[in-house]
Simulated assay, not measured.
Amino acid sequence: MNANLLELKGVQTHIGAYHILHGVNLAVPRGQLTMLLGRNGAGKTTTLRTIMGLWKASQGSVTLNGQDITQAATPQIAGLGVAYVPETMGIFADLTVKENMLLAARAARTAQQIDEKRLQWIFSLFPAVEKFWNHPAGKLSGGQKQMLAVSRAIVEPRELLIVDEPSKGLAPAIINNMIDAFAQLKASGVTILLVEQNINFAKRLGDTVAVMDNGIVVHAGSMKQLADDEELQHSLLGLAL
C-alpha cells in the first residue's frame, strides 16, 4: 500500500485565459494531517478544487489510493471517500441543520436512518450541531456554520477530508474546539488536507506541510521543522510563525 493516499504530479490548471497552477507536486501521507500554506493568491484553493475535479487539470496527474482521478467527475471523486469543505462552507441556509446533515448522508432517507453512533460522535465533537438540530442553518453564527460544514462532510466515513481555511473569521474559543475536533478525526484514521492562514492552528495540528507560491509547491517537509526554523518561515511566508 502506498504511503501517500493522495499525490499530485506536475499538475497545471488553467481557468479561462489564466494559468493558475504551474506544475504542482504534492504528497498527502495516509493517516496524517497535511497543511497547505502560502500567501494569498499562491494557488492553494485552486489546488483543492483541482483535486475535487471542480476545475480540471490541463496537465499532470492526480492519484488517490493509486487510482488516477485527474479527469474524474466530482461525484465520482466524492464516491471514493473524499469530502471537501470549501471556504464558503456551502451551507443551505433555508434548510435546518438536520436537513443539511441528511443531504450529506447519502445512505439515509430520513434523519432516523443516519448512523446513530456516528451522529453521537459528531455531536461530541460539535455540540452546537445537536443544540441547533432543528434550527435554520442560515441563523447560525459563522463558527456554528463552520462546525456544521465539517460535520456534514464526516456524517459518512471518509478516507480523505479536504478543508479550505476552517478557522477563518472564528473566535479563539471556537478555533480551539475546531483544533480538538480535527485531532480526533486524525486519530480515528482520517487523512486530512487543510489550507490554513492561522499559523497557530497549523503548528498545533500539522504533521507535514507544503508551502505554495506562484502556483507551485516551493517547500515540503515536516510541520515541526518549519515551525522551529524562523529563517525558513521568513523566506517562504514573509513572516515568523
Rank of each mutant, 00 (worst) to 15 (best):
L8N: 04
L8I: 06
L8T: 03
L8G: 04
V11P: 11
T13S: 12
I15P: 03
Y18T: 13
I20N: 02
G23C: 06
V28M: 07
G31M: 10
R39N: 11
R39T: 12
G41N: 03
A42M: 08
G43E: 02
T46S: 07
L48Y: 00
T50I: 07
W55R: 02
S58A: 11
N65I: 00
D68W: 02
I69E: 04
A73N: 12
P75T: 05
G79K: 08
T88Y: 02
G90I: 03
I91G: 03
V97H: 06
K98W: 02
K98A: 15
N100E: 04
L102N: 06
L102M: 05
L103Q: 13
L103M: 15
A104T: 08
A107W: 01
A111T: 11
D115G: 04
R118M: 00
L125M: 11
A128D: 13
W133S: 01
N134Q: 11
H135R: 15
P136D: 04
K139D: 14
S141M: 06
A149G: 06
V150D: 01
R152I: 03
V155Q: 05
E156A: 04
P157C: 00
R158I: 14
L160D: 13
V163W: 13
V163L: 11
E165R: 02
P166A: 00
P166V: 03
K168A: 15
A171V: 11
I174E: 03
N176A: 15
M178T: 11
M178K: 04
K186Q: 15
A187M: 10
A187K: 15
V190T: 15
I192A: 09
V195L: 01
N198I: 11
A202T: 08
T208H: 15
A210G: 12
V218T: 14
S222F: 04
M223P: 01
M223N: 02
K224Y: 02
K224P: 00
Q225Y: 05
L226G: 07
E230G: 02
E230R: 14
E230H: 13
H234S: 05
H234N: 09
L236D: 10
G238C: 08
